[in-house]
Amino acid sequence: MGSDGESHAAHYKKIYVILLGLLAVSLIGPYFGEKFDMMWLTLITAFGIAFVKAWLVLKHFMHVDVERPFIHYALITGVGFMVLFFAGVSPDVMKHEGTNWENVGAKAEIARALAEAEAGGGHGAHGEAAAHGDDADAHDDAAEHKAPAH
């Protein structure tokens, strides 16, 4: 695997530094993304970089690129089945109404939670559903900036 031992360790350390850099970017990006309400910036930095980091770990640490091809097919098939599962299930779980049916339970839950967030909301203090019962007593102290409901 590559030339002599020494450059190996250096190679891995180099990759490690890149990964830390990407981590920093994926932390700073969403911070600014929220501040200036640029949703796409949060998405790209948080999730896009996650994929890049994943590929770096796969390639350089797990040496998947030099692995036998059927291992690639097995890994990709596994991920493919999860995408298939997402595609088959999301119309029923992600959506709350469809042809001839309506998920009134979920809609009520969403409306209640959003209304509660609004009521407790306003700038600064942030209400939230502590105990799930109806009497949500907002007692959150850590004032954080208001989250954009994306």
Partner: peptide
């Protein structure tokens, strides 16, 4: 289904 209204 509890929580849903299904028409037919």
């Amino acid at each position: 289904i509890p929580g849903r209204v299904i028409q037919g």
